[in-house]
Design a protein around this nucleic acid. Structure first.
Lengths: 244, 244
DNA sequence: TAGTGGTCTAGACCACTCC
DNA sequence: GAGTGGTCTAGACCACTAA
């Protein structure tokens, strides 16, 4: 194995070269989420670097949440963790402060031609066939959010059928049954006023403030596979952070 | 120097002990934001550990943003960086995507007795004397946000005077002129409807959705010194993040 | 030129997992 | 017991900064 093929610029530290090698293996599909990667001594020999250098590279990737280690077992490629989604902040707002489970139902699921706006988000031509899924989230039987998802139909062929059960975490089905690896997501958050139909579903006044979450989800090679808009009641949303 | 006094539990790794030592120095005030800490060899000798162990401890604290390093010069204690505030996402939303500067004015500045709610946030008895500051933020001469701040008056005695200029970044004055170190802040974000007076200031309809940011700022020993509520137009706010 | 952090190596010993 | 990651050390060499 010639490690130098992974050196983008001369002067790059060796441990960065090792990082790039592992990143390429993951992004290129040689290593998939959940896979065990070669052990540190194996990598060190294969790439002709010392164990310490491999360790440092892996430590950095663990810090980035791309890998995780398990003492005595090995180092694995991380699965995407939707607990890092801003979405989870919809579970706050109850007096106790404890997270509350949100139950989801799926009133609508159908194939549609994509609008220009949605297709742009998915980086496909306008009118590409999409699977549209609408879901409503309940907390203690009260509707708190409504979620509209557009999937590229060809990527999840069969998901439109009524027989295919959709659990609360939709991605589980996609990854397991449609063999479509989910690599990463981008989210953006803002606020807007409820329109008439949304206000009815969420039992608020038309024009009432809502928290709005846009999410694009990517498979291998940075291919977008889903675009989703979640609108929720702000009284059940609070995002906390710390500055230092 | 007996390093073991910093070991909370037996079995704690040495580098954690070094981390705790440095953290204590910072939280206790022996090291202040901006200070140069002892060099790695000095720390290694003082604490009777190897250079590699000190390096690992410092690397971890750098990752936490508590320290930063400058090759050839040394390692410093970080100053709080308000660029990490959610507030900065109020600068987005212009077509180009580039950050836009927000200019702030200060129409109100006066001493008041604190309400029960605000005093609770500041962890002081109700009716403690507070300095109330109200500020309005403009982007391209359009008001986009309104900010209400409550400072513990005793902490910033003199800031109530008209002669003391308040720049866009209020904390600069506090740190420099009132010698009050700012250590960290906590923020939480949600949405709510504009009330009458806010809607007038921000030139929106009453009841229009606003993005709301609550912030508590702490000095040494986790003492709260300021509580602040920022309300802004959502069309000038968008918070982006990535999940993986 | 002396002192700082940045990179890299080699190797010892320990703790955990699995067979 | 063999293999994995976790901790710790010692030391070489390089790159940057300041006087």
């Amino acid at each position: 194995m010639n490690i130098w093929q992974y050196q983008p610029k001369p002067g790059t530290p060796l441990y960065k070269v090792v990082e790039n090698y592992l990143r390429d293996q993951i992004n290129g599909g040689e290593l998939s989420p959940g896979d065990l990667i070669p052990s540190e001594p194996q990598l060190a020999e294969r790439l002709n670097v010392s164990g310490g250098t491999v360790k440092k590279a892996i430590e950095n990737l663990v810090h980035e949440n791309l890998l995780y280690r398990h003492q005595g077992k090995g180092t694995y490629v991380s699965r995407i963790d939707f607990n890092n989604s801003l979405f989870k902040f919809f579970t706050y707002g109850n007096p106790s402060g404890n997270p509350v489970r949100i139950h989801k139902e799926t009133p609508t699921r159908e194939l549609r031609q994509g609008s220009e706006k949605i297709c742009q988000r998915l980086n496909v031509p306008t009118h590409t066939e999409l699977l549209y899924i609408e879901r409503i989230g309940y907390r203690d039987d009260k509707p708190v959010l409504i979620e509209k998802c557009w999937w590229i139909a060809d990527m999840v062929r069969g998901l439109e059928k009524e027989e295919v059960h959709i659990p609360d975490l939709l991605y589980a089905v996609v990854v397991d049954q449609f063999n479509l690896p989910i690599i990463r997501s981008e989210e953006s958050l803002t606020a807007e006023a409820a329109n008439l139909s949304t206000s009815k579903v969420l039992e608020v006044e038309p024009g009432a403030p809502l928290v709005v979450l846009h999410r694009t989800t990517y498979s291998r090679d940075n291919t977008p596979v889903e675009f989703r808009i979640t609108r929720g009641r702000p009284d059940s949303f609070s995002y906390r952070t710390e500055i230092r």
